[in-house]
Design a protein around this nucleic acid. Structure first.
Lengths: 209, 209
DNA sequence: CCGGGTACTGTATATAAATACAGTTATGCG
DNA sequence: CGCATAACTGTATTTATATACAGTACCCGG
């Protein structure tokens, strides 16, 4: 993606702010008004250039048909500041499918770094010593890759689990943070294994007694 | 706010999904198409009813002028969905004074029971075994009263601390959840002591490594 | 000094979209 | 039963929006 000129950046920022503020992208006229242009075509020109530079996507013939392409926002989590809560995940099905969404919590995805994509309710106390307790909502950033030492959401033989990842050459260890639990050792050449995401935060709203 | 009929709920969900998927609210025609209506007015009718029931806001004369008002499932309290983060609390000053507000986090106060009033950054690891770690944001419900056994934000001799409360007749104990720390015993007749609030939840957004 | 890019003005127009008006069918309520 | 309400069909009309076409002014590099 090319660099944007200062003016183009301002237009881009205005689009982003408009989406945040009003919940929808601006029209050409609204851009015109906001910048004091005397022609809606000034806005049109800028949008074309932003599209050329891959900063936005224009949906032809569509009112307010502007999409931000840069990393700014957008993902499984929307800008309105809510995250889907994923419930019990069925074997063999993708974690973010509609069927698993049990609700939405109004928690800003951008509160976490990197951005959280969904919340997962933690079962069991295998990560107790990392301060992750039974019933906690784990904020997860969707990713198929993770570094050794990170706490990850992993899928082993169609079962979803939260553990600390440790790489050992061709094998992978999933370590609990509780001496009462045993580590899971995986031979990546033999066992079915996939990383679903990286733990980026936590929300606890019960069991505080 | 009234309840929505199943069909109205479907329309509402469609609007939410459309915003998530495409980055903008749907038009009447798009709703019509998605539900197989033969008239755009069917969509118009539904939108009117959703507005009557305070589920959405319609911006008149505006393309895609639909705003979600109640954030799906979450209790529809009219709050702006954010909580102040209280920083270092100066001696002798009330905890919720403007001077201490370090920022606001977009976290729904109604996510916690009872409702959270502010977030407090936890210092130290004295509550480690309760899953409350250094740097965590404690969600606090403002209250001058608390039951024995609850985790409270207390002020002892002008110092603010988070501990488990235990009542012992005329005295009060503030118990850490970490054997490395010692309990604080207070004679309520002699010592300056006040409960600032009750811990109702937790948000962690760092130190997840 | 010419060509190309940025940053616009000004006018025009097809169409995307909101929305009014007039009905229809079905259901539940008192 | 009559009546309100939900959930539509069908048609029409305005207006909001996207977008084409024709220019102007300025800066920059070759």
């Amino acid at each position: 993606m090319d660099e944007l000129t200062p003016q183009q950046q301002k237009i881009f920022d205005f689009i982003r702010k408009t989406i945040e503020r009003s919940g929808m992208p601006p029209t050409r006229s609204e851009i015109q008004l906001a910048f004091g242009f005397r022609s809606p075509n000034a806005a049109e020109d800028h949008l074309r250039k932003l599209q050329q530079r891959n900063a936005i996507e224009i949906l032809p013939g569509t009112a307010r048909g502007i999409r931000l392409k840069k990393s700014s926002l957008m993902s499984g989590a929307l800008n309105n500041g809510s995250l889907p809560l994923i419930g019990r995940v069925a074997a063999g099905s993708p974690i973010l499918s509609e069927a698993h969404v049990q609700g939405r919590y109004q928690v800003d995805p951008a509160l976490f770094k990197p951005r959280a994509d969904y919340l997962l309710r933690v079962r069991g106390s295998s990560m107790r010593d990392a301060g992750i307790l039974d019933g906690d909502l784990l904020a997860v950033h969707r990713s198929a890759e993770a570094r050794s030492g990170q706490i990850v959401v992993a899928r082993v033989h169609d079962e979803v689990t939260v553990k600390r990842l440790r790489r050992r050459g061709a094998s992978v260890e999933l370590l609990p943070e509780n001496p009462d639990f045993k580590a899971i050792v995986i031979d990546t050449r033999q066992d079915s294994f996939a990383i679903e995401g990286i733990a980026v935060g936590l929300v606890r709203n019960e069991r505080l007694l």
